[in-house]
Simulated scan of single mutants.
Amino acid sequence: MLFAVRITDKPGMGATRRGVRDAHIAYLSAHAAMLVLAGPVMDAEGNSIGSVRLVEAENRPAAERLCAEDPFALAGCFASVEIDPYRIVFRDGRLVE
């Protein structure tokens, strides 16, 4: 099942994110099979202020665990995490449903 994940960081977490980024990348790499796409959301100055992920998970609790065990979450970076079921209608400019 696909889930859209929107993560908003707490303000002022740039230094913390940079400090745990290697652990975060290693963690997501270990779970790469679950990631359809993932990347940071940036502010106008190019600073990361959160993330968007499209996650393939067995169920919502599995998607929640993926986020909760992320080193960014464990370091206290996340202000909010929204997880909703998702359905792809268009991919790469083509209707796929």
Rank of each mutant, 00 (worst) to 15 (best):
M1P: 13
L2E: 09
F3W: 03
F3Y: 15
A4P: 00
V5G: 04
V5W: 07
R6L: 14
T8N: 07
T8L: 04
D9G: 05
D9N: 07
D9T: 01
D9L: 02
D9K: 04
D9E: 09
K10C: 04
K10S: 10
K10H: 11
P11M: 02
M13Q: 04
M13V: 05
A15P: 00
A15E: 02
A15Q: 01
R17W: 02
R18I: 00
G19P: 06
G19V: 08
R21A: 01
R21H: 12
H24R: 09
H24P: 08
H24M: 04
I25E: 12
A26L: 12
L28N: 13
L28K: 00
L28Q: 14
S29G: 15
S29H: 14
A30S: 11
H31P: 00
H31Y: 10
H31S: 04
A32S: 15
A33H: 15
M34V: 12
M34W: 08
M34Y: 09
L35Q: 11
L35M: 15
V36Y: 01
L37V: 05
A38D: 10
A38T: 13
A38K: 14
A38C: 13
P40E: 03
P40G: 05
P40H: 01
V41H: 11
M42E: 03
M42A: 07
D43Q: 03
D43G: 04
A44Q: 08
A44R: 11
G46A: 06
G46H: 02
N47T: 06
N47A: 02
S48L: 05
S48H: 07
S48Q: 08
S48T: 08
I49Q: 06
S51H: 09
V52I: 14
R53M: 14
R53P: 00
L54Y: 02
L54N: 01
V55R: 02
N59C: 11
N59P: 05
R60F: 08
R60S: 10
R60T: 03
P61D: 04
A62C: 06
A62G: 07
A63H: 01
E64A: 07
E64P: 05
R65T: 09
C67L: 05
C67Q: 11
C67W: 02
E69T: 13
D70S: 12
D70M: 06
D70V: 07
P71E: 09
F72W: 09
F72Q: 01
F72D: 12
A73D: 10
L74C: 12
L74W: 03
L74F: 06
C77Y: 01
C77Q: 05
F78Y: 15
F78D: 03
F78Q: 04
F78A: 07
A79P: 08
A79K: 14
A79S: 15
S80K: 08
S80L: 12
V81L: 11
V81C: 10
E82T: 14
E82Q: 15
I83L: 04
D84R: 14
D84T: 13
P85L: 07
P85C: 08
P85R: 13
P85W: 08
R87S: 12
R87P: 00
R87H: 11
I88Q: 13
I88M: 13
I88S: 12
I88K: 12
V89Y: 06
F90K: 01
R91M: 03
R91C: 07
D92W: 03
D92I: 00
D92V: 01
D92K: 00
G93L: 07
R94N: 05
R94E: 06
R94K: 10
L95Q: 08
L95M: 08
E97Q: 13
